[in-house]
Design a protein around this nucleic acid. Sequence first.
DNA 1: TCTAAAGAGGACTGATTTGGTCCTATTGGG
DNA 2: CCCAATAGGACCAAATCAGTCCTCTTTAGA
Lengths: 157, 157
Amino acid sequence: MVLLGRYVIRLSKLTDYAVVMLSYMAAREGEVYTTARLAQRSAVPEPTAAKILKSLARGSILVSQRGSNGGYELARPAAEITVAEIIVALDGPIALAACVEGSSDHCGVEQLCSMRGNWNRVNRAIRDALEDITLADMAVPFVAPAVVETRPEQGLR
Amino acid sequence: MVLLGRYVIRLSKLTDYAVVMLSYMAAREGEVYTTARLAQRSAVPEPTAAKILKSLARGSILVSQRGSNGGYELARPAAEITVAEIIVALDGPIALAACVEGSSDHCGVEQLCSMRGNWNRVNRAIRDALEDITLADMAVPFVAPAVVETRPEQGLR
DNA sequence: TCTAAAGAGGACTGATTTGGTCCTATTGGG
DNA sequence: CCCAATAGGACCAAATCAGTCCTCTTTAGA
Ligand code: FES
Ligand code: FES
C-alpha cells in the first residue's frame, strides 16, 4: 500500500501565528524585535512565540541577535519572503503524500506506482501557488481597511 | 488571537487511498465495484476501504447501489472529477486557517483582521490548483510506464 | 569582569486528530 | 425470505501537535 511518510500538508496554528508576527515585523523593516514584544503584540503566549521565532530563524526567515539588546529581524524584505518558506520553516516540506520525489520509501504495489508522478504534479501546483504569495502580500497595513463582513468573495486581487 | 477553527489543509492517507481506489475504478467506467473487490485491489484493509467509499459516495463522487449485486460506480467520467472534490469529500473544506470566508468565528484582535482576505487569497490559489487536476490525470494506465527512479524532477507535464 | 537580557536547543506533556475497527440498520435481488 | 451489499455511527489506539519549561550560550554595558 502506498506507505505514506512524513509528508502531508499541514499548515496550522503555528504557521498562522507566524504570519501574524511576521506581518507585524514587516511594518517597519530593519527594526529588531524581542520575543516578548512580538508575543505581546500578536497575543500569542510567550513560550509558544519563542518556539515559532526560533523555527523561523532556523529557516533563515529571521536573523537573530543574541545577548542583551538582541532580538529578531526580517532576514530579507517582506516582498522576498514567500508563504511557502514560512510553511516550510514551521511544518516541513510541502507535500501531500508519499510517492514524492526524493522519498526513498517505495510502496509494495508496483502497479500503482504510476500514480507517483501525478502526485508530484499536485505538489508542484500547490507549491507554486504558495511561492507566489509573499509576506508583503499578507502584511497589509495594520490600520484595518474596513474588512467587508458579509461574504467577502469579492476581488481582493 | 487568530482562533483557528476546523480548517486546515490536511490531505492524508485516506485521501491517498481514495485516489488509488478511484484510479482503479476509472480504468473501466460504468462498471460496478464492491467494497471487497476494491479493498483487495488497492491493498487497503476492507473496513477502512468501506469507510472511504462511503465518504466518497456522500460526496457525490461515487454512486452506490445497495442490495445484492450492489457496489459503487463513478458518478461521473474521471475527467470531471477533480482532486479538490476528493479531498473535500474526505477531509472537509480546503482551507488553511480560520479567517476564512464563511467562518463566523471572529478573532479578538481586530487589528489583525486585515490579514483575513489574504489568507483567502492563499486558499483560493490552492483550491484552484487542486481543481485543475482531475482523476483522469491521476489515473494513468496501470501498466506502470517505467517510473524513473533517480530524482524524477523532470517534466512529467 | 560581572551581570542581566536576550536567544538556542531540546525534553516533556496534555490535548487533538487520525486511522482503523466494529456493530447495527437498511436496501434490494433472486 | 434470505443473503449480499451499503449506510451510518460509535468507538478505540496511535500518532501528531501545541504549548511549556529547563538549561546553556551569547553579548551589551555598568
Ligand atoms: S511509491 Fe507510491 S505508489 Fe509506489
Ligand atoms: S477573524 Fe482572523 S484575524 Fe480576525
